[in-house]
């Protein structure tokens, strides 16, 4: 009997232990390694950095670490401009997403109930289609002699080909397009629960629709607005594929910088330092997001 309960306790202990161990080894440890390599020096060797960790020489290992790469990040204003422009592009895109997503989520929340789950499925569907493919689709549309130009010239709206591809405008279009479900779904979740009688009461008391929108709908939708904005802003800052395929060579973004330090310049320590920089920028939004999510999950009935 004692033996059986021991086995039982061991098997039940495995439930948290297995995923815990997995994430510890493949998420936490890799992270510490990034931190360590960001303090190392690049080397012409395999692996291309030094010092390499040796248990026998911990003191020598520690003394060889320094903040050189981070000093380099502050010296070359390329990284400063890339950081600034990433945050700016992500912030503007988030605002555009909010402007585009709110009317859609609002329309979904007001649709007859039997259509709502279909509308939700329709918002989710493109989100599961390949990100890369959805961005690729826009190249054919935005090209100078592409489909948008053909359509607009066809109806006589413009007489000269539009040259949007490889500009920042194309990056905004790409981010808004790719992240729209991330914005619409949290907004819809809060708007759907909204009590319409509040709006009716406001109208009865003589408030204009515009005013009741700002004093009732927006404050009630705030949790969705915050969750959706963070859900778009955080990955947008580190975005690589969209600026690389739709942006021009002058579209600076930090994710793209990390990629080129790693793949083109083969400077692993500098790439790691850029990763740490990106993480420092995102720590605050990620912590706030986790907080909002935890509260949302607990608030659920």
């Amino acid at each position: 009997m004692i033996e059986r309960s021991l086995i039982r306790r061991l098997t039940s202990g495995l439930v948290p232990a297995v995923p815990y161990l997995w994430l510890g080894v493949l998420f936490l440890v890799p992270f510490l390694i990034v931190l360590k390599i960001s303090l190392s020096d690049p080397a012409v060797a395999q692996p291309p950095y030094k010092p390499v960790f040796e248990w026998s020489d911990i003191a020598g290992f520690l003394s060889a670490l320094d903040f050189e790469n981070f000093a380099l990040l502050t010296e070359d204003d390329l990284y400063f401009r890339a950081t600034l422009s990433s945050v700016r592009i992500a912030a503007v895109s988030t605002l555009l997403l909010l402007l585009a997503g709110f009317p859609i989520a609002y329309g979904m929340a007001r649709a007859p109930e039997r259509y709502r789950s279909l509308l939700v499925a329709l918002v989710i569907l493109p989100f599961w289609t390949s990100f890369l493919i959805r961005i690729y689709a826009w190249i054919a549309i935005l090209k100078p002699e592409g489909l948008l130009t053909q359509a607009l010239m066809g109806i006589g709206l413009i007489s000269e080909p539009l040259d949007i591809l490889n500009t920042e405008i194309a990056v905004y279009i790409g981010i808004v397009y790719a992240y729209l479900p991330f914005m619409v779904l949290p907004l819809y979740a809060t708007l759907e629960k909204m009590d319409d009688t509040l709006l009716e009461a406001a109208l009865d008391l003589g408030s204009t629709p515009w005013r009741s929108f700002w004093t009732i709908t927006v404050p009630l939708a705030m949790p969705g607005i915050v969750a959706g904005s963070l859900l778009c802003f955080i990955p947008a800052v580190g975005e690589f594929v969209i600026p690389d395929l739709l942006g021009g060579s002058e579209t600076l973004m930090i994710g793209r910088q990390l990629w080129s330090e790693f793949f083109s310049n083969r400077d692993w320590p500098l790439a790691s330092a850029v990763a740490i920089l990106l993480l420092i920028i995102l720590v605050m939004p990620i912590v706030i997001y986790r907080d909002v999510e935890a509260r949302r999950v607990e608030a659920r009935p």
């Binding site: 890799p30 390694i33 990034v34 960790f53 859900l231 580190g238 990390l258 993480l279």
Partner: peptide, 17 residues
Amino acid sequence: VMPEVITGLSLLLFFVA
């Protein structure tokens, strides 16, 4: 929510290490 470039880079450095 982690940018994929960070996840990718950190795992690669782990595998190399």
